[in-house]
Simulated assay, not measured.
Amino acid sequence: MSDFLQTLTLSSSGMTAQATRLRHLSENIANVDTPGYRRKTVSFEAVLQGGAAGQVEVGKVRLDRAELTRIYDPGHPLADATGSYDGSNVDLMIEIADAREAQRSYEANLKVFDQARQMAQGLLDLLRR
């Protein structure tokens, strides 16, 4: 039965990590037009102590150090003497692709979780007979 519990733990850690990733991706998408906004990225780290082999957790959230786009708009309140201001460094296409990848990874972990749950339930039903 411990293998079933380990499988549930692994898949739930993956779902938690992907949900956190999706939250940060949605923040990036929401701030695509915010001047001076830097894209947030998350990394996954293996749980080394007390966790099951393969269990992951979200590491530090980092700001993307890529250059901010310069936007020419002399009428904008943040424009400098050249008529430009710093936009965000969020690329909407990359964020959407990353969000789709995170969603599919979440769904894969959910299917593993559900399959392990069904197998455990089937085993319990057999043991009750």
Results as ranks from 00 to 15, higher is better:
F4L: 05
V32E: 02
F113G: 09
A79Q: 09
I94N: 10
V42E: 14
A99Y: 03
E101C: 03
D33Y: 12
Q49D: 08
A66M: 02
G50D: 05
A120S: 15
T34L: 07
D3T: 04
D86Q: 04
L48P: 06
G122N: 15
I96M: 08
R100Q: 13
L78N: 09
D64P: 11
E45N: 01
G54P: 04
A46I: 07
G50M: 03
T20E: 10
D114M: 12
L127Y: 03
A99C: 01
R129I: 15
I71R: 01
E45Y: 00
R100D: 09
L127C: 06
I71M: 01
L8R: 03
L22C: 00
Q55N: 03
A52H: 02
R39I: 13
A102S: 07
V112A: 12
D114R: 14
H24T: 08
D91L: 00
V112H: 05
Q103T: 11
L48F: 10
R117P: 07
M119F: 13
A108D: 05
A66H: 09
F113D: 08
I29H: 03
E57W: 06
A46L: 11
G14P: 00
T69A: 13
E107K: 04
A17F: 06
I96N: 02
E57Y: 06
K40I: 14
L22N: 03
L124P: 12
E57Q: 13
L124K: 13
S88E: 05
D86T: 04
M1W: 05
A30F: 08
A30S: 10
R104Q: 09
G36Q: 10
R65A: 09
Q55S: 06
S43W: 09
P74K: 05
V58Y: 13
A19M: 07
P35M: 01
S11W: 01
Q121E: 12
E95L: 00
K40R: 15
A120I: 10
Q6V: 00
A97K: 10
G36N: 12
L127R: 06
T82R: 07
G54T: 03
A30D: 08
V90A: 03
A30L: 02
D33M: 11
R62S: 14
T20Q: 10
R104H: 08
R39M: 13
D125S: 15
P74E: 06
S43Y: 11
R21Q: 07
S105Q: 07
L5N: 05
N89C: 11
M15I: 03
S105P: 01
L8C: 01
G87K: 00
M119Y: 12
R62F: 11
M119I: 14
Y106G: 02
Y72R: 13
L126Q: 07
R128K: 15
V61H: 14
V90F: 02
S84M: 10
D73G: 08
T9S: 08
M1A: 04
Q6L: 00
T7K: 04
D64Y: 12
D64E: 14
D33Q: 15
